[in-house]
């Protein structure tokens, strides 16, 4: 269970999150929508511990543990996964090497034995097949020369291999064509099928046609201003934020 209480975060001295409250129970899928500049990405980075996102007040507990006192890699070890809006290219590091190092780092943190090379190969091949990803892609350098869709698919492969208990997906659907969107949605639903928690950050309603959330929140000006079900997303799609009385780019 993720519990965020009165979270206030500054970036470069400017307050972006202004007292945000959110609780996600195990197995729930929450979607956060909101106008540009509302603080959606800031929320995901603050939960995962990126430098430069300074928490000035509030708490973030995951399964009762204080995430804010942990390094980003410890948060990952606790079962958190961040799907990036813009996955980073890392020339010179192959996907395979990266994923194996990541998986074994997490297993060491969790006190589990490292995965042997042979078993890792089997695991990653199986996951690539499930997600319809060309195994050749795994030999290439991390995200280097990948199209936008390939990068997002690669995030899904990483998520499947690392098998987090909570995934925060920051605009994973942006820039995807309809086929890629289905693959990404499929990856999310597989995780959901195992009773994992998911926080979807999205601009558009269309992902929610494939991954039906339990709750939809509207984030505006650093706070959650409205909570509902999938219907709320449909209303937003139809009327826009202004139509629901939420100021565009209120910050």
């Amino acid at each position: 269970m993720l519990e965020i209480k009165n979270l206030r975060v500054t970036v470069g001295g400017k307050e972006i999150l202004k007292g945000l409250n959110l609780t996600i129970n195990d197995g729930e899928v929450h979607a956060i929508m909101g106008p540009n500049g509302a603080g959606k990405s800031t929320l995901s980075y603050a939960i995962c511990g990126k430098d430069g996102y300074e928490v000035i007040e509030g708490s973030v507990l995951y399964n009762g543990k204080d995430l804010l006192s942990m390094d980003p890699n410890e948060r990952a070890g606790e079962g958190l996964f961040l799907g990036f809006q813009y996955p980073v290219e890392i020339p010179g590091v192959s996907n395979m090497n990266f994923l194996r190092t990541a998986l074994n780092s997490q297993r060491r943190y969790q006190g589990a034995p490292e995965v042997k090379a042979v078993d890792f190969l089997k695991l990653i091949r199986a996951k690539a097949k499930e997600l319809d990803v060309d195994p050749e892609m795994l030999k290439r350098d991390v995200n280097v020369g990948f199209s936008g869709g390939e990068k997002k698919r690669n995030e899904m492969v990483q998520m499947a291999v690392l098998d987090p208990s909570m995934a925060i997906l920051d605009e994973t659907d942006s820039g995807l064509d309809i086929d890629a969107l289905r693959i990404v949605a499929d990856g999310i639903n597989r995780l959901r099928g195992q009773d994992k928690s998911i926080l979807l950050i999205t601009h558009y309603q269309r992902l929610l046609d494939y991954v039906v959330p339990d709750f939809v929140h509207v984030l505006a000006d650093g706070r959650i201003v409205k909570t509902g079900t999938k219907d709320l997303a449909l209303q937003l799609e139809a009327k826009g934020y202004a139509g629901l009385g939420i100021a565009e780019n209120a910050a």
């Binding site: 890392i90 020339p91 190092t101 990541a102």
Partner: peptide, 30 residues
């Protein structure tokens, strides 16, 4: 070292030393 690369690696579970090691290795591997 690229801060975004470092954070990306750390968000996947690599501690700071391991993330730096991987990036330095990649840098000289060329």
């Amino acid at each position: 070292l690229d801060r975004d690369q470092l954070f990306y690696l750390r968000s996947r579970g690599l501690d700071e030393a391991a993330a730096k090691e991987l990036l330095v290795e990649a840098f000289v591997a060329e």
